[in-house]
Design a protein around this nucleic acid. Structure first.
Length: 898
RNA sequence: GGGGGCAUAGCUCAGUUGGUUUAGAGCAUCUGCCUUACAAGCAGAGGGUCACAGGUUCGAGCCCUGUAACUCCCA
């Protein structure tokens, strides 16, 4: 069979994925084997595959494939998240394009559109995962709004409510005026914005003196001049309509005379107290703070503390409410412009400054988030969080890298209650039911709620009709369903203690981005302990964030997000997997650079060409009877590579256990490219049209197979392809089981290293002396241990293009001298030698060695070192000294011959 | 404002309880090769006061303290 010049991934990849699926290799059922379970972080049902997914899922695939090859029952569960706000926003946008507004639809009608949309687009991202080779058990595909999953979410809410962990409360929340919903803190994105800081003066009641704290106060008189003023600074002047106090620091000398007095809110003349609290920063603005408890988080807390009136001046769409008295029904930003004009006209505006501050935006709609008081459902977190914190601190659950433990601890120790209600329709509807009198119960159905309500209130009970009660309109926060993922995908709540959940749960490894450590990881841990009484996973691998070459986050608006499927077409999935893995140690952001993908493609090609070389030998093995006079040289190469391979197997295993995936891949890469291709294959390569020793050939096939097996979890497609080209078999590499770790011999590896070193040094010498590659040399070796070289003469002569190797006890004049460790090599060639170059080289080396000797002997002459350091270390230093002394002697002798 | 993280070659990063021939890799650079698997390749080379300043130690890229820089998360 003719092999193409270069490796062509496209057909190969499609072919093998199809084959694996047909064989059902990725499907898992509980059996006697040890399970290895991973649940996918469910991508948004609306999502399409991006680099972050690619990284994340490649890592999971590597772990799963490796486990599968190690005899474990590997189970990787796919699925999607309904992503309430993101999906609802997309559906609303889709409807708008068709000229339909959400408000014109009933809840049921809207949900019907949403489900249609989900059915049409919801599976795309999962299909894309197949392209990169993810070995997911597709039979298990889950969705956070599947019937049973849905019911479990409701059950969890009722359960927590009964346990007293859930309450309904009017609290400050982040309000998205566009989506008209509450947002969790995590859904608010803070951006730096250029704003204006307005200085506004409030008239003080009964003030005998006019106090001017601002130098720039305009000299205008609108009939207020008989009274004193107090000036405050604000970036949101429209909120003054909701002011219920002014607060100053009690230690602020400038305002001591105002303690306990009253001021008037400009334009509406509400009389408000001047209070004191150390919360106020004296050197910000004027040191006087207007307090608007309904529209600012911190003001709200002050309001609670001093029992201030809460005046909610904003409607849910961001327009001013009746309580504002002015500008009713107008948008807050319009009002901001108008109120400034009025304040100025009435002499209340003192000055305006440019000001840079952080403003919260809705992650999904990009609207400016307004802090707002709202009646919402909350989970009280303190109790639930305790075991989850403990588990990570005690390393019952391990974070990789461990540095995320600190971050986690800090958050968990300062955890705030979780607002779980969202004013959305797409999601799990809150199972709370209200009677006309405002009383409510939490129940699994309307009927159940009806019964409960009847019982709870005698007065109500007799008159209450089931039609009168109304279910809460709101949905749960998406994460309130996502936190059940690791067990509910196995129906751990809907069918408690079923065989599947008993077998697969707790899962082994969670792979996710550090961005969602609080949204999701922390809450899954809490849910695991709260509902299953067990941790959800043993290890958490945090990936980095994929950034562009300049370190910017990938985003639609920057247009710096590459088209992943395009890249796969261009380079092949294996190359993409390689490129993204080679540069991404756990927890470090990765700067995406296409050159890494090129490296991956080149690696594919290298492997492909190694296969071509070996295939050339297929019909060219020497017959068996040559075994007797088989040259020893090839033997050395074969033995050496076996040990080299075994050592790397052990190293890779160790790295994988420690989740050092990137390093493991680098190690395998170097084993394949450098050790196998550049050294081993060159050493055993027969001369032009010469036969190859049968045993060497067979061993080489085995090595190549082993290399493919080692690499398979990282680059599944090309390795499977090569495996089948090497060997006529029905067995597939994907399910080939790993052999136990073999031993390796250090001395053989050292002999190999010496050989490499000698070859490199001699090639370097050839290069420096401008001996053409085609020109042969004669090599004289001066050594005390001929045994080191005799078995490898053939390799050596081939690798340095020597037509003769002889041993000598004396220096050989008129040659190039090369010193390696304690041995000397004399290169005899027809080339005119430049003695100057030679001498300089040797002198440089000599100086280097002498310096080194100095540092070593200094160390050894230090009594304290000899006393304190371990015997091993001291011995090593002694060996270094002896070796260096010998080498210096060699170099000095060499210099004499020149 | 609170909490973390990072710092090593031109770039991106390894460097695993402090000692392994006075720091490693990939990319980039330079030199020589169209050698019969691979020019998407081969053989070589150059390049680093390990942020700065102190300290602990026989010994520090690694541990401690401080400084300034960058960066992420949170308010």
């Amino acid at each position: 069979m003719e092999l193409s010049k270069n490796y062509i991934p496209i057909e190969v990849e499609a072919k093998w994925y199809e084959h694996w699926i047909q064989k059902g290799y990725f499907n898992s059922k509980p059996d006697k084997r040890e399970p290895y379970t991973v649940v996918i972080p469910p991508p948004n049902v609306t999502g399409i595959l991006h680099m972050g997914h690619c990284l994340n899922n490649t890592i999971q695939d590597i772990l799963i494939r490796r486990a599968r090859m190690q005899g474990k029952n590997a189970c990787w569960v796919p699925g999607t998240d309904h992503a309430s706000i993101a999906t609802e926003a997309k559906v609303v946008a889709m409807l708008r394009e068709r000229g339909i507004t959400k408000s014109s639809l009933s809840r049921d009608e809207f949900l019907q559109y949403a489900w249609e949309w989900k059915e049409k687009y919801g599976g795309i991202i999962l299909q894309q995962l197949k392209k990169i080779g993810c070995s997911l058990d597709w039979n298990r595909t889950a969705f956070t709004m599947d019937d049973e999953y849905y019911q479990s979410v409701i059950k969890v809410f009722i359960d927590l409510y009964k346990k007293g962990h859930i309450y309904r409360g009017k609290r400050m929340i982040n309000w998205d005026v566009k989506a008209k919903t509450a947002l969790s803190d995590e859904e608010v994105i803070y951006k730096e914005v250029q704003s204006k800081l307005y200085y506004v003066r409030y008239a003080i009641e009964d003030s005998p003196l006019s106090i001017d704290h601002s130098k720039n106060i305009p000299a205008i008189d609108h009939g207020l001049s008989t009274m004193g003023y107090l000036t405050i600074a604000t970036v949101r002047p429209e909120t003054i309509l909701g002011d219920s106090a002014i607060c100053v620091n009690p230690n602020d000398e400038r305002y001591k005379h105002l303690h306990g007095k009253f001021a008037y809110v400009p334009l509406i003349n509400r009389r408000i107290p001047i209070i004191t609290d150390e919360y106020v920063t004296m050197d910000f603005g004027t040191g006087a703070l207007k307090v608007t408890p309904a529209h600012d988080m911190n003001d709200y807390q002050l309001g609670q503390k001093y029992q201030l009136e809460i005046i909610d001046t904003m409607n849910d769409d961001g327009t001013m409410s009746d309580a504002a008295q002015l500008f009713i029904g107008e948008d807050r930003f319009e009002v901001r412009k108008k109120i400034v004009i009025q304040l100025e006209a009435t002499g209340h505006l003192v000055k305006v400054e440019e000001y840079t501050n952080q403003i919260g935006f809705s992650e999904r709609t990009d609207a400016v988030v307004e802090p707002r008081l709202s009646l919402q459902w909350w989970v009280s977190m303190k109790t639930i969080a305790a075991p989850a914190l403990q588990a990570v601190m005690d390393e019952e659950i391990n974070f990789h890298p461990a540095k995320f433990k600190n971050l986690y601890r800090h958050w968990m120790e300062n955890i705030k209650d979780w607002c779980i209600s969202r004013q959305l329709w797409w999601g799990h509807r809150i199972p709370a039911y209200y009677a006309p009198d405002g009383s409510f119960v939490v129940a699994s159905s309307k009927e159940e709620a009806f019964k409960q309500l009847q019982n709870s209130s005698r007065a109500l009970g007799t008159k209450l009709q089931i039609e009168d009660i109304r279910q809460d309109d709101d949905c749960f926060d998406t994460w309130f369903s996502a936190w059940l993922w690791p067990f509910e995908v196995f129906k751990g709540l809907s069918h408690p203690d079923n065989e599947e959940v008993k077998y697969y749960y707790p899962t082994n490894t969670l792979v996710t981005a550090p961005e969602i450590i609080f949204f999701w990881v922390a809450r899954m841990i809490m849910a695991g302990y709260e509902f299953m009484d067990k941790k959800p996973f043993n290890d958490v691998y945090f990936t980095g964030i994929v950034r562009d070459k300049q370190g910017r986050k990938m985003s639609k608006s920057l247009g710096n997000s590459p088209d992943l499927l395009g890249l796969i077409d261009q380079y092949g999935a294996d190359a993409v997997r390689f490129g993204i893995m080679i540069s991404s140690p756990a927890g470090n952001d990765i700067l995406f650079d296409e050159s890494a993908l090129e490296q991956g493609r080149n690696f594919n090609n290298k492997i492909w060409n190694a296969l071509k070389l070996i295939k050339m030998w297929e019909g060219r093995q020497a017959s068996n009877n040559t075994t007797d006079n088989k040259p020893q040289t090839t033997n050395f190469a074969v033995v050496w590579f076996e040990h080299r391979l075994n050592k790397v197997k052990a190293e890779v295993n160790e790295m994988m256990v420690q989740f050092r995936l990137s390093e493991a891949l680098k190690t395998i890469y170097s084993l394949v490219w450098d050790d196998f291709c550049s050294w081993y294959l060159e050493w055993i390569k027969p001369g032009f049209e010469q036969p190859i020793d049968k045993e060497v050939y067979e061993r080489t096939l085995i090595y190549f197979e082993d290399l493919m097996q080692l690499l398979h979890p990282f680059m599944p497609f090309i390795t499977e392809e090569i495996y089948h080209l090497l060997k006529d078999t029905n067995e597939d590499l994907t399910v080939k089981q790993e052999a136990p770790l073999p031993f390796y011999n250090k001395e053989i590896l050292e002999a190999g290293n010496l050989l490499k070193k000698v070859i490199s040094a001699l090639r370097d010498a050839r290069n420096k002396n401008q001996i053409k590659p085609k020109e042969t040399i004669k090599l004289h070796i001066q050594t005390l241990v001929k045994n080191n070289y005799q078995p490898i003469e053939n390799i050596l002569s081939k690798q340095v293009n020597a037509d003769l190797i002889v041993y000598t006890e004396d220096n050989v004049p008129k040659t190039i001298v090369v010193a390696v460790e304690k041995d000397k090599f004399f290169i005899e060639s027809d080339q005119q030698l430049d003695v100057g170059i030679l001498k300089n080289e040797l002198l440089r080396d000599l100086e280097h060695q002498k310096k080194f000797l100095e540092s070593v002997s200094k160390k050894l002459s230090n009594e304290k070192f000899v006393q304190n350091a371990s015997q091993e270390v001291v011995d090593l230093e002694r060996k270094k000294m002896a070796d260096t002394e010998a080498r210096i002697k060699t170099i000095e002798e060499s210099l004499q011959t020149i």
